[in-house]
Write a protein that binds this DNA or RNA. Structure first.
Lengths: 206, 206, 206, 206
DNA sequence: CATGAATGAGCGTTCATTCAT
DNA sequence: GATGAATGAACGCTCATTCAT
């Protein structure tokens, strides 16, 4: 009411400032989360690293989960793009599954295993937010479609359920990865066997 | 150490008392843990429910993880016994896998999904204690052995790896169960399909 | 740091509020400390008396020693001022020593003997903070200077060591005061004799 | 009532056992107290070192102060004996005071400065037990008597109050020793000056 | 928009102490 | 006489959260 035309301008400045602070917080959060997993990472460390007040964090993110979500969103898009590009090339189902393992391993090494574990468990958490459904997971969607195409081409058992098969596979890969106790060598072996095993559950052994 | 033979006898009374208190705490803990998972569980609520002093909890259990371990120990034995009894009866591999799903579902409903999740994640936790290795999981051991017997009987693909197959199956079941978002009906369907899918990965479709 | 000029102005309101809470805590602390000495003092009682949350205490004071230091700081300034004003008047050495005894007795009665003891022992504590050195004690400094002036005026033995003499005197006064078992009457007598005795150690009996 | 003549015998055995445990506790206590001062030393450490149960400590000693008292009692007797033997030899007052400083320094090095500090503060503590009065301190008694004899021999000012003078001296020595912050060299200098200063307060400068 | 003071709940821990055995 | 289970009070501390400014 006391404001003149400059208000929208001022608001814009605020927007810029807000996004700046928000980005600082996200950057600091990913560093902290990588270090100690999202459970352990305390907000103190994040805000300290971001150079803002503790309460500023809560201004931007209602809970620490919201930070995670924002981080996930970033990478999911990238992952889906990469996987989509791969699907545009010549490929068979074994190659597809292997590619997925590779992508997920990439993701894990980018995030660190502790944080990765936390992120995955968001998909399983009883309190997970609406949009983190499997049905929305970009890789899941593409994989299910690919399996279905394969089935229609007659390469798989007739009665294969593309949706569930895709879920079993991704779930399995994630679960194996969270089995952090084994050495990387053992894990790689297990993943390779898992791909083979999954293929056998889909198509007649040729 | 300085005790003579009579002491251990006399001490029995105290032992009984101690075990009683301990059991009260465990009972109260499982209730609280069921409600909110072991991480979030309020120790104050537990001791209040058990009717003992806060410090008594810490007298018996150094950390909340120790409670969890004790709870697991209890049920694992029971589970393994039940599964062992089942294996003594006439059965085929599909029945075995179905039985396992059933047993795990039982366990989950007894524990509640939050606590169940915690327990499972003990198997995946980077800091899990030695004895909570897959290799020691009673169902895992029995299942792997059963798969291997089946393979030797020529019922499975020749090159099936019993150890990994058992792991994939249990991991998958657990993972599906932690996917709490779906309705129970959907979950049951998914589990049934998962059993079928696993069987196909093990034996030629007849 | 990112603040502009107006912030410090605006912050003043908060500063006032903060200092108010801080003062409330200090006031409550001195009451509790008087009752039972700073070691034994119950932080819960302090915060309850101050009408703030427990964590607020720790927000303001990392340890209980910090409270003590703040209390000391308050009174040392006052004490030094009063002693300084006295030194500005006409006086001789006996009057100076007597004045010191009087000031210290005042301090003790304001603080109570338990707290007073704690405060003094800060000067003796192996972990005492830098600034609580004798060399910084305001009365000590003034007394040593006064003794030295007296010596230069030829009123004392030539070889009197002002620094040590001042220390012996203050130490003695404090030590006598911590000897709480005797009645006040006995203590007053002892203090009077101690002043006489100290004077005799400084100047030829006239 | 069911007991026969063997009771007194049995009681004797118990006595032996009790004294044995008591001695073990004392030995452990002095070690622990030396390490960290009596304030810090926790009963846990003592009972652990003594190899007895926590509650056994409380069976023998109502409070930790009672342990200290028992330890003091031991050494005071020895100290008084040694000082008494010295007084039997040819000596003058300066030698007496110097001897006392020496004895106290010995005591301090035997006990460690932290424990020594605690012990001394027992003499000043508002809750100190009856028998820890200055009036009972063995050295104090002997010193006061010696000063009085000296005064009677006409070596001191006529009006010297032996009781208070002895108190001032011992108090001063103890107080200087608790000034732990200074180097040993500085402390020795201070003690020497303190002896001189005290002598001057007692006898005309020759 | 961002801040910092303040909160409240809980944490894991220490420790003197009691008491039945 | 000695024990160990149990207690209760306080400790210092963390941390998500609220709120007035």
């Amino acid at each position: 009411m006391r404001h003149n035309g400059r208000v929208s301008e001022a608001a814009t400045r605020r927007d810029v400032q807000r996004e700046h602070t928000r980005a600082r917080l996200l950057d600091a959060a990913i560093v902290e989360f990588r270090r100690s997993g999202s459970q352990m990472a305390d907000i103190n460390a994040i805000v300290k690293a971001a150079g803002v007040a503790r309460s500023t964090f809560y201004f931007h993110f209602p809970t620490r989960e919201h930070v995670l979500l924002e981080l996930i969103r970033r990478d999911e898009v990238q992952l889906a793009n990469e996987f989509g590009r791969f699907l545009d090339t010549r490929h068979d189902l074994p190659a597809v599954l292997t590619k997925i393992v590779e992508l997920v391993l990439d993701l894990e090494s980018r995030w660190g295993s502790a944080l990765f574990h936390d992120v995955i468990s968001l998909y399983f958490s009883p309190t997970r937010p609406e949009r983190e459904q499997w049905a929305n997971h970009p890789i899941f969607v593409l994989l299910a479609a690919e399996i279905e195409r394969s089935r229609i081409r007659g390469e798989l058992y007739d009665d294969v359920d593309a949706y569930h098969s895709a879920a079993f596979f991704l779930l399995g890969v994630y679960a194996l990865l969270t089995t952090a106790g084994e050495s990387n060598g053992e894990r790689d072996v297990a993943l390779k066997k898992f791909v083979t095993s999954t293929l056998r559950s889909l198509q007649p052994v040729g």
